[in-house]
Design a protein around this nucleic acid. Structure first.
Lengths: 100, 100
DNA sequence: AAGATAATTAGAAAATTATCTAAATATCTA
DNA sequence: TAGATATTTAGATAATTTTCTAATTATCTT
C-alpha cells in the first residue's frame, strides 16, 4: 500500500501526466521533454525526479544528455488497485482494517 | 481529459483513497466514515465533497443522515487511461499534440 | 417548541507543493 | 584548456491544499 501512495502522488500533477503521455510515444531527453512545456527546466527536472522516485520512469545518461523512458511495471499495480473496484466482489464482507 | 484531471486530484489524497476503500465494503453515513479517522468531521466532509465533485461517490439524504456510496463508473475511465500504457501500442507513432 | 444529533459551511492557520532564479556539475567541442 | 551545452541542485517565494474551530442548517425526539 506504500508504493501505491507514491504512485498516486506522482500522478496527481497534470504536468507529470503529460510527461508520461510524451514518454509513451518515445524516449526523450530532459531537454526535449522541457520543450513541450512553458515552465523552466529546473521545474521539469523536479517533476522528472518525482516520477523517477515513483519508479514510473527511468533515466539513462548518455554523454551530456539524460534519456528518460517509461517504466510500465508500476502501472500494473495501479491497474490492480482500480480493477478491484470494478470487477472484484470477493472481499466485500471482509473486516478490512487495512493499515495505511 | 478534463474529467480525468478531477479524478486524479480526488485520488491524490490518502484519506480520500481510504474513504473509497471503506465505501467499497458498504455504504456508510458521513458520521460512520468519520469514525474511521482521527481528523474532525468538517475535514471529512471536505474530502467527501471533493470525491463527490469527481463523481466518485454519491450521497443520499435519509432523515438527518447522509448516506454515501461508491460510483464505480468513473473508475472505468481511469482504467482506460492506465491500460493504454500497458497494452495499447497502436498510437505510438502519433503526433500526439493533446491539449490539456 | 426546545434540546439533541447529523452534517455542512465559512473562514483562518498550518502544511505541502510547484515554480522561479542563481549557481553547480558534467560533458562536449574547438 | 576554455567556452558552450545539458541537466541538476539549492534556496526562496508563490500557490494550493489540508485541517481546525465556530457557526449554521436540517432533522429527530420528547
Amino acid at each position: 500500500m506504500k508504493q501505491l501512495n507514491v504512485t498516486f502522488k506522482a500522478l496527481m500533477d497534470p504536468t507529470r501526466r503529460k510527461i508520461i503521455e510524451l514518454l509513451k510515444q518515445k524516449d526523450m531527453t530532459a531537454g526535449e521533454i522541457a520543450e513541450h512545456f512553458q515552465m523552466k527546466k529546473p521545474s521539469i527536472s523536479h517533476h522528472l525526479n518525482i516520477l523517477k522516485q515513483a519508479y514510473m520512469i527511468q533515466d539513462e545518461k548518455k554523454g551530456q544528455y539524460v534519456f528518460y523512458s517509461l517504466n510500465t511495471t508500476v502501472f500494473q499495480e495501479l491497474l490492480y488497485w482500480i480493477t478491484h473496484f470494478t470487477d472484484d466482489d470477493s472481499n466485500k464482507g471482509d473486516k478490512g482494517e487495512e493499515k495505511e
